[in-house]
């Protein structure tokens, strides 16, 4: 199999994920889109690991999975907090980050 078929699939997933992160109003859906991005990265890691016949790719994919789990945990906690404070998880309303 060509290496590129995996890499292109990953690139497609990544870009769809980026699109989701940019357009979704709901914080929950943004988190899901981030999962798409992370999975794209994982495919790349494992594919390159397979290319060089190195186990390092798999190992780091596992690390990424662990980190992603942590990220979802923290992310959901933040979303929950946001919901508790604002009764909404609409990111359009979260605009305190301006000068």
């Amino acid at each position: 199999m060509l290496l590129n078929q995996f890499l292109l699939l990953a690139a497609a997933l990544f870009c769809i994920g980026v699109y989701g992160v940019l357009v979704r109003r709901s914080a929950m859906l943004v988190l899901m889109s981030i999962e798409l991005i992370l999975n794209a990265v994982n495919i790349n890691l494992v594919a390159f690991g397979a290319l060089t016949d190195d186990v390092g790719g798999s190992v780091f994919a596992l690390f990424t999975i662990a980190v992603a789990a942590a990220e979802v945990g923290i992310g959901l906690a933040i979303v929950l907090l946001m919901y508790r404070n604002r009764r909404s998880i609409d990111l359009a309303q979260v605009d305190l980050l301006k000068g």
């Binding site: 199999m1 995996f6 699939l9 994982n42 495919i43 494992v46 594919a47 690991g49 397979a50 790719g57 798999s58 994919a61 596992l62 999975i65």
Partner: peptide, 10 residues
């Protein structure tokens, strides 16, 4: 896809 790439554990 991981299975295709032989990374069963992952």
């Amino acid at each position: 896809q991981f299975l295709f790439l032989g990374a069963e554990f992952v």
